[in-house]
Design a protein around this nucleic acid. Structure first.
Lengths: 337, 337
DNA sequence: TTGAAAGCGATACCAA
DNA sequence: TTGGTATCGCTTTCAA
């Protein structure tokens, strides 16, 4: 293993100059920097992580806690983990995984041992026990999702209520007076809170705009195809021609199939908006207007906030809602008389 | 932050005694150990990770590389990540995530900087570039999966060929002379190698036992329900009454539905074996005999091997195949005349 | 059974 | 623009 001493010797300078040349925290003359870089190159030098942590009081590691509850939608979750890892890496941080029981216990452990510079919290539950833990830690902690008691916490999330407002507005603007919200599974309305927040936003705005609203869940603990089909058919037969879908890809597919089976055409006879979908809606059978939930955005903001808290320790905790963005694909049509 | 010095002072001993008392690497008298433990407790002492790494030359961290290719089955993958994290933690190790481009590049980085003690490799491809990287590293590396060129590598995996053998044997023993293998997607036979290994095992044993074999894939890049149904119907109409399924849960469900739709009963008219499934087959509509792929087993063995390589540096690289286990659920019936 | 002290390999302060 | 060196908090050898 090559050390900073060997690099210094090879370059004919002191170790402090090597350190400064590599960190850029002090100006170094062009030619000495070249010599140092050459030495680093030929010797294959890589600073020792442990020594760095000890001397620099920075680990360049973020903890990522994820309980991985059984009802977590795996693809969505993986997208968030991946996005967090990529975002962190861009800022020079690695991700240390805290899953399962370690999700809570590990937070204390890695914070107390200075293994991580900050902690990112995924898969947030309404009554998340990690909220209290976070409040008791000195390490900056950023929640991706919002617990019921978010007091004193830094949180990042899509503005689900705003998303609900936006979806209803678009349909109401198109003249629809009757809308069905095809939601998540029953269990997710109890164990998470973003589905409720979207529902609330939809209900609120529907009331304001005088829109009749129906709400159907899509299964008990897991997506139930026949329940979805049933709900869609019921709505269509009652004359509903506008849908907001807050669900996984399969539910979208079933709705689109059911609409087609009724001899109706999305974007002409029926309007559909996909709300807060984290999958690629462009791969659906029919193009659907989407207000997407973009893991990259949430995670990049979360990482930015963690870094900011590290660099400016005084930064106040705050909830950051990401404004919804409406992507037109032609699935919303004017209501027919 | 409390340091080992404060603990030593509080307990009235030297720091070395504290260190030894906590690591157990040297006998410490009962009563001094008590005093030290008390001090640790009341002060809330947790050893500094960086200092530990530097002085102890051990990080207690494993790198986990996972490219997360687009065709990766998310739930299966998550099960492996979780199992790896749990197994590692049991032995006192944390998991550092190396995803995406970092899967390869990161291996070199974390190994060179001594950030990790060993590396676990997930999501192994036939021509995996991480094979060469692993061979060039000094850090112990364990593959969970087997690349085509596994020379000099330590690998862990289910014995997929043996799984194929076992499945065919059970059906042949029951008198079946005609079997259909319902396999994975097309793409997985190109981008992974375990599907091929299972296929090979099935073909081999089918030839040996004089069993007619048909093989159907279940879609191009993603599971195609109608393709699965078509394959199942084709087989049933040709008189095939024995199936080996190597696929995700949905494919099982579709096969079972199709069998029922033909008025046939699994375990009486038709025999079905699920091979190398990593999901919980007990939640299927009909109980199905299973030769499971258990992430916990693979990951525990992988972690054990990594630890062994750390403790006994001479340990030779080797491929470790986990013997298949047959779980009876009553879905295999004697063939009818 | 215990203690003193020499590192481990960086960072960053104080001088020059 | 550069160098010397104290320091970070622990592990482990050597001595007692």
């Amino acid at each position: 293993m090559t050390t900073i001493h060997e690099v210094a010797e090879a370059a004919g300078v002191s170790i402090s100059t090597v350190s400064y040349a590599l960190s850029g925290k002090r100006p170094v003359s062009e030619k000495t920097r070249r010599r140092i870089e050459d030495a680093v190159q030929t010797l294959g030098y890589e600073p020792d992580a442990g020594a760095r942590m000890l001397a620099g009081r920075r680990t360049q590691i973020f903890g990522l806690t994820e309980p991985l509850r059984a009802d977590t939608h795996a693809p969505t979750h993986m997208a968030f983990v991946l996005a967090a890892a990529v975002a962190a890496r861009r800022r020079g941080y690695d991700i240390l995984l805290l899953t399962d029981e370690q999700a809570s216990e590990g937070m204390n452990r890695v914070a107390a041992s200075n293994l991580v510079d900050a902690i990112l919290v995924l898969d947030v539950a309404p009554d998340d026990e990690r909220a209290d833990i976070a409040r008791s830690l000195r390490s900056p902690t950023v929640f991706i999702g919002i617990p019921d008691d978010a007091d004193g916490l830094t949180c990042v999330d899509l503005d689900f209520e705003g998303t609900g407002h936006l979806a209803v507005d678009r349909l109401a603007d198109a003249g629809h007076t009757s809308v069905t919200l095809l939601g998540q599974t029953e269990v997710s309305y109890r164990k998470s809170n973003f589905p409720r927040r979207l529902l609330l936003g939809v209900q609120e705005r529907a009331a304001q705009r005088g829109v009749d609203l129906d709400w159907a869940t899509t299964g008990d603990t897991t997506t139930d195809a026949s329940a979805v089909r049933g709900a869609a058919e019921m709505a269509l037969s009652r004359g509903v021609r506008a849908f907001i879908v807050h669900a996984v890809g399969d539910v979208h597919e079933i709705l689109l199939e059911t609409i087609a089976a009724h001899g109706l055409t999305v974007g002409e006879d029926v309007s559909v908006i996909s709300a807060a979908a984290s999958f690629d809606t462009s791969s659906l059978a029919v193009p659907v207007d989407t207000i997407p939930l973009v893991p990259q955005k949430s995670c990049e903001l979360a990482v930015d906030l963690a870094v900011r808290h590290l660099e400016e320790p005084g930064t106040p905790a705050q909830i950051h809602l990401i404004p919804p963005e409406y992507h037109v694909a032609g699935s919303v049509a004017p209501a027919r008389e």
